[in-house]
Computed example of a mutant assay.
Amino acid sequence: MPPYTTITTRFELTRPSSRYSDYMFAPQVLHQLAEHFKSGRMPVQFNHDPTHRLDGRVIDAEVVSLPNGETAIDVTVEIELGDWQEVQDAVAAEGGPGGFSFSMSSSLVRSDPAREASVTLAADPAAWTQDQLEDARVLLDAVVPTDSALLFQFSAAVEIATIALVLTDIATGVLGNAAYDAIKLLVRARAPKGMTRVEIRRPMADGTEVIAVVVTDDPDIAQQALTLLPEMQTQPVILFDDDSWDWPEG
């Protein structure tokens, strides 16, 4: 069994951050987050990238009161020593501050409060405005009930902003051009400032999910990835190859 180490990181979320100056969270939300951390359902991965998962797990999360009157969460992660060294080396090479970060989503618009939506479109509010997200959501909502959510990436440095398209009991083919147009709209809006990571997430009956990822600043590549996405995905995570313009399972 390889050696492991434990790392504790503090997240202060009850006041605006440099990345999310317009958002802060009530203390009761932090208690909900702490329970979610402790549930073990949150994967440990490098730089918010589902294609780069690490051998680690959250072993504790505690809400703490700070001397300045604010509230924070202390999260303790157990991680394989070699993986942690890889993280440290990568951070040092980029000149980053190190430590852990995490992602969370917050519901924004419900298509129909009386029923569950088949699709949820989530996007990082540091990269897209709520109006841009709504413009993309209504394209999908014209085909199937579609909710939207804000996808927060709490990190000192995020170079690639993320969109998540969550499909519940629905095939991508059903969405047709609406999916292409919605994702292309967001990728195009982001392109002048940087790359977009599009995650197509499909929950499974056993509680797991499969994820297909494309990283690009080209709307046409994003459309090609959606067009060729296999309906039956056998690997937990697959990455679109923008050199061959195909998926590994294509």
Rank of each mutant, 00 (worst) to 15 (best):
D83M: 14
V87S: 05
L140D: 13
E86R: 09
A122L: 09
F100W: 14
A117Y: 00
T76M: 01
L81E: 06
D147Q: 13
P192F: 06
A156L: 13
I170W: 02
Q130F: 09
S101I: 11
Q130H: 05
P97D: 08
P192K: 14
V138K: 02
A136F: 03
I160H: 01
P145V: 11
E134S: 14
T196H: 01
D181L: 12
W84Q: 10
S155K: 09
L175V: 09
F100T: 10
A122T: 09
A182N: 06
D135H: 14
A123D: 02
R197K: 10
A114I: 15
R202T: 03
K193I: 15
L133G: 08
D83W: 09
G176P: 03
W84A: 05
N177S: 09
R137C: 04
T208L: 08
S106W: 13
R137L: 07
T172K: 09
V158E: 06
E199F: 08
L175W: 00
D131Y: 03
M204K: 15
V166Q: 11
S103K: 14
I170F: 02
T76E: 00
A156G: 12
A114K: 12
R197C: 08
M195L: 13
L186R: 04
P125K: 07
P125F: 05
R110N: 10
L165D: 01
I170R: 03
P203V: 08
A126L: 08
A182R: 08
P192I: 14
S155E: 04
D181C: 04
L175Q: 02
E159A: 14
R190C: 01
S103P: 05
F100Y: 14
N177K: 08
